[in-house]
Simulated scan of single mutants.
Amino acid sequence: MDDTLVSIILPTYNRASFLGAALASVFAQTHRQWELVVVDDGSTDDTVDVLGRHDDPRIVYVHQENQGVSAARNAGIARCSGEMVALLDSDDEWLPAKLGRQLAYMQEHGYEISQTEEIWIRGGRRVNQKAKYAKPEGWFFERSLEMCLISPSCTMFTREAWERIGPFDVDMPSCEDYDLWLRACLHFPVGLVAEKLTIKHGGRPGQLSNCVPCADLHRIRALVKILQSGKLDAAQGAAALEALRRKVEIYAQGSEKRGKSDEAKRVWNLFCMVREGKRIPLNTLR
């Protein structure tokens, strides 16, 4: 048995009805060397009671006032002690071989970051993924500019990789994963375990994708951040700027349709400033 300790980071906020299944999927793992850091982000439901049913010294419980998923993940990683880190959202699940297969794959191929394939469940039913969501492997920074191609609950990475790409941006109420994985894809090739070892649920109440408005604005923020990081070469910078232009156009068109012409002009003007090489404050893109 591989004795590598994997730290599982599980943030949760008022998902007591789903948390039990996520926990059960952790306890079912064939790789037994793990610790589970559960970060309760100020839940007001029965989350504590659900966790109290499990008496296992491998569980680390962290409670904080509600600060959002980014702060919760950051807090969990700061408290963990494993040399490998795996993320699990509290409404997702893993198949039993997930940690073991992924760890072995990374060790065999020398990846610092990897993900698995996933099963999509929407409204309680399994659905097929569209071709555009197919997960790539290797270096794919340019492809990741268009959309988020890495799923948090599918990922595992080394502590060394985290030190280079983290933390999650606590000022982003959504698309925080798109922002982090842009940095990851810039610095590392990403491995892919071509097995569906993660079950990803969608269409549930309380999910960020359903609750946070203006996700396009947060993606724009992430692109501006990476463009202003000073870490892109000429080709990467051109690709990121073109992706920013497309997303600004989409956002501006949506603003116009909602009668918000001033907002459309504001964001377009910010894009023009970035295109001209001027730095803009990120707090203008929230």
Rank of each mutant, 00 (worst) to 15 (best):
F168R: 14
C154A: 15
P136S: 04
D169R: 15
E83W: 02
K98Q: 03
I121L: 13
G166M: 12
P173D: 03
M172Q: 15
C80P: 04
R79P: 05
W139C: 09
W139F: 09
G82Q: 06
S81D: 11
K135W: 03
V170M: 08
K130N: 10
A131D: 13
E137G: 07
S151E: 03
L87Q: 11
G110A: 12
E117R: 13
E137M: 13
L88E: 05
E93P: 04
A161E: 04
Q107D: 04
V127A: 06
E163R: 10
R126D: 00
E112L: 10
S81N: 14
K132I: 14
C148Y: 06
K132H: 12
D91F: 11
L88G: 09
A134S: 09
C80V: 09
F157A: 03
P167T: 09
L149G: 11
E160M: 03
P173I: 09
E83T: 14
E118N: 06
G166D: 12
Q102N: 05
K98A: 01
L95A: 13
S153M: 01
G82W: 08
F140K: 13
S153P: 15
V170I: 13
L88Q: 02
V170H: 00
M106A: 03
P96I: 01
I165L: 01
A78C: 02
P173C: 07
M172E: 11
A78Y: 05
R79D: 02
I165D: 01
E142A: 15
F168E: 02
G100F: 06
I165Q: 02
G100I: 08
T155Y: 02
Y105A: 15
P96F: 09
M172V: 10
S153N: 09
V170R: 12
C148N: 15
T155G: 03
F168Q: 02
